[in-house]
Write a protein that binds this DNA or RNA. Structure first.
Length: 438
RNA sequence: GGCGCCUUGGCGGAGUGGUUACGCAGAGGUCUGCAAAACCUUUUACGCCGGUUCAAUUCCGGCAGGCGCCUCCA
């Protein structure tokens, strides 16, 4: 929903979707990935009756709802790129599929699943007997109105709006004509309408946050399956949430850390990405600056390993034990294919980086580079994004070596400092001087 | 009130009925012109109480604590 800046909890989830796509690709599939943009507001009851998040956001920022949606949509798409999340095949917008949504309501209406009350057209969940099954809901025991005022016109507590009428005394930025009156679609509707358009009546995998199980996904299923009579998805993937200081992230708690905050603290977004992979998507995991720093250091090791491809390779005659990179690759892929077990995948990668700290052999270089390419494809850590040291820097390294050979320590240290200013560190190993990025 | 989840070493985080997860951090050492890095060694685990079992962190029950959902939310 594009009404505000996404926080890191959102990005955790998006990275996990990305891992699914990358794992499928590494396994020989070419998934069609649809990520829908909710650019028409949901109903809220933050005490502002008749307003929704987008309209509210617009008023807050002194713009129209359309401007707000566009602004945050653009920001979101850029964020996907910044986090190195594979580009979805389709990014359909709810506002561009109003007709499809109206058509879906018509089909539901024909089948007798709808009824109209003063503020909109509703879905009668009692007409869909399997309604509570998906989330194992105990609808009768759920306390209606405990947190939100219950609309007494609704037939059942769990009934939800398919089409909301615009308030009589108000002109909304976003509203459309429909057979039932001027208004706007309920927010569960777009997912059913757009998924059927782009993925057919049954999709292979439907992903989403764990929080959506009881309401949103339940409602999606009710809408879609009432019309198709087929399962909406073969498989559901629900990502758990992260907590910050033991609490969930929410705007009201003011702990919504953004990508900008991450960078402001001096961390790269790839460090954040690695941090996401360190926990399993089903687990509720914790975010802290300390653990992000740990991930950042870990990434530095991986990068130093990747940069070995620029260093002088050792001859084949030395004692460096050859590694079976293909085997490591297979093991990592197997871990990912096992319910996206990224923690295990990383433990294998760390084993390799622990073995390759100073040098690689000329003989294994091609396999090593294939391995790095696989890691970048599967995990998206951009290890191959770094470039070689410049020829000037390499010259300085050589000069320093000469100075050391002549025991001109002052000169040698000066050169090391100079390289350090350029972000290049030097380590003197048994294989010679190796540079790495500070 | 209803539904569900969690509790692992300094931090993060996997996993398993009997065998090192992994990462980060800490300590000591080797190496080094000095560093850095690397390498070696090292410290502390499975909330509490019962039960099942030859054996439980890993299964069962209870207790304590924490969290999530039942509003929009990743």
């Amino acid at each position: 929903t594009v009404y505000a800046y996404p926080h890191i909890g959102n990005w955790f989830t998006f990275v996990r979707y990305d891992l699914l796509v990358r794992t499928l690709r590494a396994s020989g599939y070419e998934p069609r990935w649809v990520m829908n943009i909710t650019d028409v507001g949901h109903l809220v009851s933050d005490g502002d009756e008749g307003e929704d998040k987008l309209e509210k956001g617009a008023r807050r920022e002194g713009k129209s709802a359309w401007d707000v949606a566009k602004f945050y949509t653009d920001y979101f798409v850029q964020g996907l790129e910044r986090m190195n999340i594979a580009a979805p095949t389709y990014l359909p917008k709810a506002t561009e599929h109003i007709q499809e949504q109206i058509d879906l309501i018509k089909r539901l209406e024909e089948r007798g699943f709808t009824y109209t009350i003063s503020d909109g057209v509703y879905y009668d969940t009692a007409k869909f007997p399997r309604y509570a099954d998906f989330a194992r809901l105990d609808v009768d025991e759920q306390q209606a109105g405990k947190r939100v005022e219950f609309n007494p016109e609704k037939r059942n507590v769990s009934d939800f709006a398919l089409w909301k009428f615009s308030p009589k005394d108000q002109i909304r930025d976003m509203e459309w004509n429909s057979p039932w009156g001027k208004g706007f679609p309920g927010w569960h509707l777009e997912c059913s309408a757009m998924s059927m358009k782009y993925l057919g009546e049954t999709m292979d995998v439907h992903a989403g946050g764990i929080d959506h199980v009881p309401v949103h996904h339940t409602n999606e299923i009710a809408q879609t399956e009432a019309v198709t009579g087929k399962p909406m998805a073969q498989c559901w993937m629900h990502t758990n949430h992260i907590t910050v200081n033991g609490e969930k992230i929410s705007k009201s708690l003011g702990n919504g850390i953004t990508l900008e905050d991450i960078e402001k603290q001096g961390f790269s977004l790839m460090a954040l990405r690695l941090h996401v992979l360190e926990s399993h998507y089903r687990s509720q995991s914790k975010f802290s600056w300390e653990s992000l720093a740990a991930a950042s250091n870990r990434l530095k090791d991986y990068r130093a390993m990747a940069d070995l491809r620029f260093q002088p390779a050792t001859s084949e005659s030395n004692e460096l034990t050859e590694l079976d990179y293909d085997q490591y690759q297979q093991d990592i892929l197997a871990a990912l294919q096992d319910d996206l077990d990224t923690p295990t995948a990383l433990s294998i990668l760390s084993r390799v980086s622990g073995e390759r700290t100073s040098s690689i052999s000329a003989h294994e270089q091609p396999a090593f580079e294939r391995f790095l390419q696989f890691i970048d494809d599967a995990l998206g850590l951009q290890l191959l994004a770094s470039s070689d040291a410049t020829s000037e820097q390499k010259q300085l390294i050589a000069q320093r070596q000469t100075a050391r050979d002549n025991k001109e320590w002052q000169t040698s240290d000066n050169l090391r400092n100079e390289l350090g200013k350029q972000g290049i560190g030097i380590r003197d190993t048994e294989y010679g001087s190796i540079w790495y990025r500070l």
